[in-house]
Amino acid sequence: MTAPTINGTRYPQPVDALLPAARNLTKSLDDLPSRNRLMREFHIGAPKADELLSRLRDERAEQDRADALHLYMVKRGSLAEPVELFPTDDDEPGPDPATAPDVPEATADTAEPVEITPAEADAEASTVGHPGTPTPAAPVRAAVAWPVVLLALPAFVAIWSGWVGLGGLTGFGIVHPLPGIWDSFSINSAITLPIGVETYGAYALYVWLSGRVPGPARRFAKWSALGSLAVGALGQVAYHLLEAAGVTSAPWWITTAVACLPVAVLGMGAALAHLVRTHD
């Protein structure tokens, strides 16, 4: 059996018939009800609930404007009672015009006409009509980022030279990546260390601090960024200690660790790129 609506009938009712009860619901909630609340309360579908909610919003906007206009007129001494545009069903009926005492109409001698311009009414409505609305905060200027360039320049020189020097002590050096195609082209394979380790560390640090990636990607970026920065620091320490001691060939365990760095960076970069694009 279909549940009865608020007016005791089981047949669909128009929005005009549901509007008084929706006003009472808005007054009891002290706020506009949601579409789902209207659908549940009045047993109506989504289109009718949307139309009803739109009518309530329009009435709320008109009432707010009337309140602001009333307050402005009270300040000017031209009105003493609030204006209610949309009374609810539970309001008490007004006095019978037949039995109401005669009240003399205001004349030009007893009441001074007040002319309100649209600009003045809008100004009052914006500041007084909504006392509960918080004042928007002033826009905050973002911090400048150009000092990072000055910080990065000396760090780039020191990190690059340290990694290239350590690569030379661990077997990295000049290679010909295109034999038979471009025999004269050569490259120092030691540059793969600063490019791979430090670039991945900066990228993982950005992903971690951005806050715009899924939780697993952010956790992986956090720990891999810290690990990459720690490995970079240890690489610099190892190079300077070996260089200060006059060592021309790094021990086998340092050579093993340095040789594995390009492979480790490739794996961590691929894993982080996969996690960033996964939203499960």
Score class of each variant (00 low, 15 high):
residue 227 G to Q: 01
residue 236 Q to D: 08
residue 26 T to C: 04
residue 239 Y to I: 02
residue 239 Y to C: 03
residue 170 T to Y: 04
residue 83 V to Q: 01
residue 19 L to N: 07
residue 245 A to C: 07
residue 117 T to P: 08
residue 220 F to A: 12
residue 254 I to R: 01
residue 123 A to T: 07
residue 145 A to D: 13
residue 13 Q to C: 11
residue 90 D to W: 04
residue 145 A to I: 14
residue 39 M to N: 02
residue 168 G to L: 06
residue 17 A to N: 14
residue 88 T to M: 03
residue 5 T to D: 15
residue 262 P to T: 06
residue 4 P to M: 02
residue 4 P to A: 14
residue 19 L to G: 05
residue 96 D to G: 00
residue 242 L to M: 09
residue 78 S to M: 08
residue 234 L to V: 12
residue 233 A to G: 11
residue 64 D to L: 12
residue 5 T to C: 10
residue 106 A to M: 06
residue 234 L to R: 13
residue 126 S to V: 10
residue 102 D to G: 10
residue 276 V to W: 09
residue 104 P to L: 12
residue 18 L to Y: 05
residue 61 A to Y: 06
residue 12 P to R: 06
residue 5 T to Q: 15
residue 201 G to F: 04
residue 45 G to C: 03
residue 2 T to Y: 01
residue 167 G to D: 01
residue 18 L to T: 03
residue 243 E to Y: 14
residue 23 R to P: 04
residue 157 V to I: 13
residue 154 P to I: 02
residue 173 G to S: 02
residue 214 P to G: 12
residue 62 E to M: 07
residue 270 A to Q: 10
residue 232 G to K: 03
residue 203 Y to Q: 09
residue 14 P to V: 07
residue 152 A to P: 08
residue 236 Q to G: 15
residue 64 D to K: 08
residue 210 S to T: 09
residue 52 L to C: 00
residue 83 V to D: 01
residue 275 L to S: 02
residue 116 I to A: 14
residue 26 T to S: 07
residue 103 V to K: 11
residue 141 R to Q: 15
residue 46 A to L: 10
residue 189 S to R: 00
residue 147 P to A: 07
residue 27 K to Y: 04
residue 24 N to H: 09
residue 251 P to I: 03
residue 19 L to H: 05
residue 111 A to M: 11
residue 275 L to F: 05
residue 106 A to K: 09
residue 56 L to T: 06
residue 242 L to Q: 08
residue 254 I to C: 03
residue 153 L to T: 13
residue 161 S to C: 08
residue 148 V to I: 10
residue 92 E to F: 00
residue 142 A to F: 12
residue 115 E to A: 14
residue 20 P to M: 01
residue 17 A to P: 03
residue 242 L to P: 01
residue 196 G to S: 13
residue 117 T to W: 10
